[in-house]
């Protein structure tokens, strides 16, 4: 129902009186053309261009020589890149899991017919409407040991309270996870809530007759029914993971040291500050390959399922 799914075109749609169909169908196809071209030329073209550049020794300006895999060899010997890659994996896993858990709890909660549901839903969703820059700024202050939470707790009578993750190289990446979850949990909530609303309330009555506790009901009965919504939410969250950049820039600028570097920032830094287009594009290519290899099985599965199932 409410999931983001691409429906197979219905067979009957095209069966109309012949001439009218041609008359309407042609401009329709023309309307699609610019979009299709843009997708093809801009996205695919630029991606291929990036890949090509990654095999050159370009520095400040692009050159079109051929250095083979030299940039990739350098890339995988680069601490900064390896840290970035590790960080994006940590962030991705924790961020998606965290958002799903918190979002599910919030959705279950709102599903109890609480008062002011519409208002609460909007408040929970608000963080998602704010830019990562502002999110980063707000959390940078909140987690700053000298200004925010730690100071607040110490001032109000907990002198031993310590929360210095933001300035601790080992923990700083987790502060970015926290800010990210805060940003994305509301979106997950809204999507899962739509799914919860579609669950037949008779199921709960039946479960109650059988003496099933509420938590068990939600975990074993409802959650499996929400699978399409969980998939939708995961896909949306995953696109956020790939884009992780502005949050880091606003919160830590990659620091302390290089502890919160992420791949997108690595590419930017090498393009603009370090004048190393070759290495930057090599890192970008690795990112493209990573995303495609995660995406491909999913798209493939989807195709096979839809083609085999409905058409």
């Amino acid at each position: 129902m409410n999931s983001i799914s691409i429906q197979a075109p219905r067979a009957g749609v095209l069966v109309r009186r012949g001439r009218r169909r041609v008359g309407r169908g042609l401009p329709a196809a023309l309307a699609l053309l610019p979009t299709a071209l843009v997708v093809l030329v801009v996205y695919v073209g630029c991606m291929l261009w990036t890949v090509r550049l990654s095999f050159t020794g370009s520095t400040l300006l692009p050159r079109y020589d051929w250095v083979g895999f030299a940039q990739y060899v350098r890339l995988f010997a680069n601490d900064r890149f390896l840290t970035s890659a590790g960080n994006i994996v940590i962030f991705g896993i924790l961020f998606i899991t965290g958002c799903l858990i918190l979002g599910f709890l919030l959705a279950v909660f709102i599903d109890q017919n609480v008062r002011g549901e519409g208002v609460l839903r909007t408040i929970f969703l608000y963080p998602y409407a704010m830019s990562f820059i502002v999110t980063g700024v707000a959390w940078q202050w909140f987690l700053n040991p000298g200004l925010g939470l730690q100071k607040l707790m110490r001032d109000t009578g907990f002198p031993g309270f310590t929360f210095d993750w933001l300035v601790n190289p080992d923990m700083a990446i987790y502060t970015i996870v926290i800010a990210g979850i805060w940003h994305g949990a509301g979106l997950t909530m809204a999507i899962l809530l739509a799914g919860l609303r579609g669950v037949d309330s008779d199921l709960w009555k039946a479960a109650r007759v059988d003496g099933v506790p509420a938590w068990r009901y939600y975990l074993s009965v409802v959650l499996p029914l929400l699978r399409p919504m969980v998939v939708t939410a995961t896909v949306l969250l995953a696109t956020g993971v790939v884009k992780l950049y502005d949050l880091v820039v606003a919160m830590t600028l990659g620091g302390p040291g290089i502890s919160t570097e992420v791949p997108a920032k690595f590419v930017m830094d090498h393009l603009f500050e370090r004048n190393n287009i070759g290495l930057g594009t090599a890192a970008a290519t690795i990112m493209l390959i990573a995303v495609v290899s995660i995406l491909a099985p999913w798209v493939y599965a989807r195709y096979v399922r839809e083609e085999g199932g409905r058409v």
Binding site: A8, C46, T50, L53, P62, T239, A264, T281, A284
Partner: peptide
């Protein structure tokens, strides 16, 4: 049509840095 839609949506999932330099 379905392929085209899926195609276009999938570009949304690609990392922007992949096209940044060009």
């Amino acid at each position: 049509t379905k392929d085209l839609l899926l195609w276009m949506l999938s570009t949304k999932m690609m990392p922007a840095v992949g096209v940044l330099i060009p």
